[in-house]
């Protein structure tokens, strides 16, 4: 009994000293709690549908950040991973009647393979050339989709997929929990030694290679990891919509993910997630002014990026927290000294 009490006290102390000390961590906690508890207050099918799709796109956006934000491999054709996984899940579900808890991981593995295939030729390219090359891949695949309509369904796509689950509420919890788990996994990857190497490749690849790091291997790994997470999102999307069509490969899908990520703040994982959770529901809210909807949306994104070029989340974070110049640990902005090393924060 005493041991249990000791452990509870330990967790609480850790919680108080590591979570409650930083507003950003409290915000994340509130966000997670709100998502988990929301159905207790409302089970409106429309609201749940918006949040289900928001979670799916949040995984998609975070996966882009893992590749382009952290590693600097600017991918303008991220819809390729999404579309490949969606089509793979859809086709094997419809033709071979394989249930979705297999089709979604298989779709993600197909996206990993795609990451490997496009990663190898793209390794030689950088900056604009890489961006333009990656942009071409989903367009090529779309051409393939239209070229073999007997297999892919052509412009109609593949329809009649199994549902993700029998109810909207279960769909909500599946996508929300997966989003939280996968986002946490991506964040842990970027916070690990691998993440530091990916970061270093973005900053100075030559220096990394000089330090003996096999940057080719890490860049390829970033393509595959990003493909895997985007693939999970694609597979989920396919089973939620129950139809997979060429729209999953459209250029707009690739650009949307970039807009969400840059709006939220790149190279953070949580930035793109926040970007999706702000912008996707906002587009729905703006339905009250249908004629002005796209204009207001575009203006809002433009103004935000004009005044917050790093993205909205880093901007807010910098307002409420300060980084210690000595130990790099963050403290709440009202503090005068660092909460760890007591160095002067101003």
């Amino acid at each position: 009994m005493g041991l249990i009490w000791f452990q509870i006290k330990r967790v609480f102390t850790l919680f108080r000293s590591e979570v409650l000390v930083l507003p950003s961590r409290v915000a994340v906690l509130i966000f997670v709690a709100a998502l988990v508890l929301l159905p207790l207050f409302s089970q409106d099918p429309y609201l749940l549908r918006i949040l289900i799709l928001t979670s799916v796109f949040a995984i998609f956006a975070a996966s882009w950040d893992l590749l382009s934000g952290f590693t600097g491999q600017m991918n303008f054709g991220h819809a390729l991973f999404f579309g490949v996984a969606a089509y793979t899940s859809g086709l094997i579900n419809v033709h071979f009647k394989i249930p979705h808890f297999f089709t979604i991981p298989i779709g993600a593995l197909a996206a990993v393979l795609t990451g490997l295939i496009i990663g190898i030729p793209c390794l030689r390219l950088r900056h604009t050339y890489l961006a333009l090359t990656t942009l071409a891949f989903p367009l090529i695949l779309m051409g393939v989709v239209f070229a073999i309509p007997d297999v892919t369904g052509g412009e109609l796509g593949v329809s009649g997929l199994d549902r993700l689950s029998g109810s909207r509420l279960r769909d909500y919890y599946i996508t929300t929990i997966l989003m939280l788990l996968l986002s946490f996994t991506m964040w842990k990857i970027t916070d690990s030694k691998t993440g530091i190497i990916l970061h270093a490749i973005r900053e100075d690849e030559l220096a990394c290679r000089t330090a003996g790091i096999n940057t080719t291997r890490y860049k390829l790994m970033a393509f595959c990891l990003s493909g895997f997470f985007a693939g999970i999102a694609g597979g989920l999307y396919a089973h939620i919509m129950r139809t997979v069509g060429p729209s999953t490969l459209e250029v707009s899908m690739s650009f949307q993910v970039i807009i969400w990520s840059i709006f939220g703040g790149v190279a953070s994982i949580y930035g793109p997630i926040a970007g999706v959770f702000i912008l996707f529901p906002l587009a729905e809210v703006l339905r009250v002014v249908p004629e002005w909807r796209m204009l207001i949306f575009a203006l809002l994104v433009l103004l935000t990026l004009l005044f917050m070029p790093e993205g909205i989340i880093p901007w807010i974070r910098d307002k409420i927290e300060k980084q210690c110049p000595r130990c790099k640990i963050r403290s709440v902005a009202i503090r005068k000294t660092c909460r760890v090393c007591t160095a002067d924060l101003d």
């Binding site: 409106d44 099918p45 429309y46 549908r49 918006i50 799709l53 919509m241 069509g245 729209s247 707009s252 587009a283 729905e284 339905r287």
Partner: peptide, 17 residues
């Protein structure tokens, strides 16, 4: 024309809201 998710959300909006 621009977004399939938008279309499905619109349908849900019409029915449930």
């Amino acid at each position: 024309f621009l977004s399939i998710p938008d279309a499905t959300n619109a349908m849900e909006l019409a029915i449930s809201r």
